[in-house]
Write a protein that binds this DNA or RNA. Structure first.
Lengths: 139, 139
DNA sequence: CTGTTTTTGAAAAAATTTTTCACTAAGTGG
DNA sequence: CCACTTAGTGAAAAATTTTTTCAAAAACAG
């Protein structure tokens, strides 16, 4: 099922700004900030407003089509989200991101922590930071 | 070794704003934003400037005494950091945080991912979100 | 103490995000 | 295919958050 259908089913309309944001993120090889998405998006649709980028990102994120990436310094980068729970692998050099599934790999750790702390764990955020193979070679 | 000594060894001076920020975070039971730290800090030292809170947090974070917490909506919360690598367990209801060690629990997962993606993983960010025991009972 | 250098607070600037509002256009039901 | 309803839009303004600048203050080494 394509993103347009998924968005429709979430009760949201398919509009120009949303199409442009998705298009930009589909092409991107690293997380992009709202500003960057806006700048690139205007090359497709001159009239695209920055406010609409913010709003589109909020809607798309809620629909699970897009997700925010957390870096030490910046937390305003967005990438396309695959359906289901995925973790992110981020290259600290070139910014490239790779998603990988793996909720189950943490279940042992989570069970252990729940026992020790009394918390009930509902969700998690896992991001790995390192160097992708091209960047390993060139450094 | 106390934080003052650790900061000295990092070549930084022990100053009033840094002492106040540490004192506030030591008392805090949840991540506090720079604004919140500033407001509470002024009750200890009326002259404390917001800018100095930002600067103190930057220095203390660099020295590993303090760390930023990433939430879905906000990423401006700071908590005290224990020495060494720790993960964070965060209650989504009351904001309480608990740190726990556990870099080793991920080593299998990381090795697997390095093999599959060619990345060289250097660091990671793991945060678990859930409900602490008091909040489980009261909901 | 005294001198050197870091650090501070205030003000201003820059940057980011949200709100408001009149207008536009998406998608539904004729 | 058209008209209607309502969600969504762009621009401007407002609100927030963070950074820069700079003269004055204060850490701390000697």
């Amino acid at each position: 099922m394509g993103w347009e259908e998924r968005l429709s089913q979430a009760g949201r309309r398919i509009t120009m700004p949303r199409r442009v944001v998705m298009q930009i993120l589909q092409r991107a090889s690293r997380p992009l900030s709202p500003q960057e998405i806006h700048a690139r998006g205007r090359r497709i649709h001159r009239s695209l407003g920055l406010v609409s980028v913010y709003r589109a990102l909020a809607v798309l994120e809620q629909a699970g089509l897009v997700r925010r990436v957390h870096q030490e310094d910046r937390c305003d980068g967005y990438i396309l989200a695959s359906p289901g729970h995925h973790h992110i692998l981020l290259c600290r050099r070139c910014g490239r991101t790779v998603e990988f599934p793996g909720a189950e790999d943490l279940s042992g750790l989570i069970a252990h922590i729940e026992r020790r702390t009394g918390f009930h764990v509902e969700d998690h955020l896992l991001q790995l930071i390192g160097l992708c193979s091209p960047c390993q070679r060139s450094s």
